[in-house]
Structure formats: C-alpha cells, structure tokens
Design a protein around this nucleic acid. Structure first.
Length: 100
DNA sequence: CTAATGACCATTA
DNA sequence: ATAATGGCCATTA
C-alpha cells in the first residue's frame, strides 16, 4: 500500500457487480481529490485480471463510459452483462453509481 | 532534473 | 450540440 496505483486498485476492488464509480470519486477516496486523470493512467496499465480489479466499473464523472485498455466496446459489453444500462454512451449514475 | 503522456474535469466558444 | 482550452497529477522517457 505504497504506490498511488496500488491504492487505486485496492479501492476499486470494493465496487460491487452491477454498480459503477467515477474516476473522480476514486481519486477522492484515496485522498487525492484532484488526481482523477492519474487514476485513469493507473488503470490503463492495470496488470491485474478483471476479476480481481474490475476497472471496467470506473466511468467518467459525467456518466459517459470513458476509456478502456482493451477497447470501449469490451467495456460496455462487460457492464451490460452485469445489468448496467448504457444509453448514448453513458450510464445513469443516480441509478448505478456506487458510494464508497 | 525536465518534458511528455494520458481510461480526466470544468469551462468557454 | 460539439470543439477547444487550461488545469490537474502520477508515471515514464
């Protein structure tokens, strides 16, 4: 629990199936409220499996899906398989957002 | 040490 | 509504 990226991964493990968190919220949860961009970078090089670190459940603060190392298509597919609805490239955070 | 690079964000045009 | 802009920050070259 030393590197920034490690904190990010640990936090994200708590996001349950069928829910999402935003890059911004993750940044806030680790005490670096303005490091949302750095969070995305950490996930981009995420070395873990999607099982242990479900980084596909992290979206942008405006609800849009955001990026994914393996392609946005794959990200959307995984989210939908968990029951999360994607409309116009985004999710309803009031409905599927997870509060830490 | 400096510069560049983004899975970001909010504002402005 | 879309596009550009400036700011942000950990990591890497």
């Amino acid at each position: 629990m030393r590197l920034f990226s490690e904190k990010v991964h640990l936090i994200i493990r708590n996001i349950p199936r069928g829910r999402v968190a935003t890059y911004r919220e993750v940044a806030r949860a680790i005490g670096r409220p303005r490091a949302a961009r750095a969070v995305g970078n950490a996930l981009n090089r995420n070395p873990y499996s999607s099982k242990r670190v479900p980084c596909h459940r992290v979206v942008r603060s405006d609800g849009l899906v955001g990026g994914y190392a393996k392609g946005v298509k794959a990200k959307i597919k995984m989210l939908e398989e968990e029951g999360i609805e994607i409309r116009r490239g985004g999710v309803n955070l009031n409905k599927f957002g997870f509060k830490f």
